[in-house]
């Protein structure tokens, strides 16, 4: 708390002239009534009542469980009874478990393949939207799916792709008499990927547009005067100036894609025995099923190990992304 005397606002003069720093602060504290610093001193006393509740709730209900997950992942435990310390054994075990590998592989597919598709589409949409008439209407409509629980899309897909459902009835007049079995166990995951692209692109388009809209119009005017082609304008104006927004979006998608659970859980009403077919599992589903499905003895150790690995994946990717996206911020 002693550093408090160097409060930047109280020491504004001090910043301009480093030599005068000491006298100024001493004078301030001697007078003690200077408003800036007195309110600051008072404010500091609010630390416990203001930050305390948020800090405690967050620590107890978020950070402690997160650390607890690491702890549990080092044990063999069925949820009740004794915990047996097994070190990194759980990690070794899940890496030999083909089910985990395919689940984790699916998560990676969502992260990279769906992510790439979303970004390309969202960027293309942003470019078209940038100066089209009625852009606000379009933006508002394509943003809305973000507010809908992914469960809804999963259930609807079951209706639309069902053997006597809408897709097949649309395909029939086109001469497709033998449509693919959309909801066969092997086809569900690709369908989930397509559904996610359709429902998520709008959200990222909205964010990218917020970045593109910030670019002042005189840059475009300059481009027009200089005779830049559309591609050159994209390459030399739009991309460099929205680079940081791209970075933000990439981080957001990394975090949210690893969490994907609901849509897989109900996709196509497939959860016959309460659990979706293993071909469409993601790492999150793997964690949930191993701990709570009630089908076998819960394996809390393996389940948390899978979750901790997802967290590790996020951390590594976020650090890499931040490093890769770090450019000189373009001031404008």
């Amino acid at each position: 708390m002693s550093v408090g005397l160097k409060e930047p606002r109280a020491g504004k003069a001090a910043l301009q002239n480093p030599d005068s720093r000491k006298p100024v602060t001493r004078k301030a504290s001697a007078q003690g009534r200077q408003p800036g610093s007195s309110i600051d001193v008072q404010r500091k006393k609010l630390l416990v009542p203001f930050v305390g509740p948020a800090f405690v709730l967050y620590t107890v209900l978020f950070i402690v469980p997160a650390l607890g997950a690491v702890w549990i992942s080092l044990h063999k435990w069925a949820g009740s009874g004794p915990m047996k310390f097994v070190g990194l054994d759980n990690y070794g075990r899940i890496f030999r478990d083909p089910l985990f590998l395919s689940s984790f592989g699916n998560t990676l597919l969502l992260l990279f393949v769906v992510g790439a598709a979303i970004f390309i589409l969202a960027f293309a949409m942003t470019l078209v939207l940038r100066d089209m008439a009625g852009k606000k209407v379009v933006r508002n409509v394509i943003f809305f799916p973000h507010l809908i629980n992914a469960l809804v899309f999963g259930v609807l897909a079951g209706f639309i792709f069902n053997p006597g459902g809408m897709v097949n009835s649309l395909l029939a007049p086109l001469g497709v008499t033998d449509p693919p079995k959309w909801l066969a166990q092997d086809n569900i995951f690709p369908l989930i990927m397509v559904t996610l692209v359709c429902t998520t692109t709008g959200y990222f388009t909205t964010i990218l547009m917020a970045g593109v809209d910030r670019i002042p119009p005189y840059y475009y005017e300059d481009c027009a005067l200089a005779g830049a082609t559309a591609f050159q304008r994209l390459r030399y104006v739009i991309l460099p100036l929205t680079w940081d927004v791209f970075g933000t979006c990439a981080v957001l998608w990394t975090i949210s894609s690893v969490k994907i659970f609901e849509i897989v859980w109900v996709f196509g009403g497939s959860s016959g025995a309460g659990v979706p077919p293993t071909q469409s599992w993601t790492a999150a589903v793997y964690t949930y099923v191993n701990a709570f499905s009630g089908q076998s003895t819960p394996a809390y150790g393996a389940a948390t190990a899978s979750a901790v690995l997802s967290l590790a994946l996020i951390s590594v990717l976020v650090v890499l992304l931040r490093r890769a996206m770090r450019r000189d911020a373009v001031e404008f």
């Binding site: 702890w71 549990i72 996020i314």
Partner: peptide
């Protein structure tokens, strides 16, 4: 950055 499935079990 912490996904919900991490804190689920603890």
């Amino acid at each position: 950055g912490i996904p919900a499935q991490v804190i689920l079990i603890p």
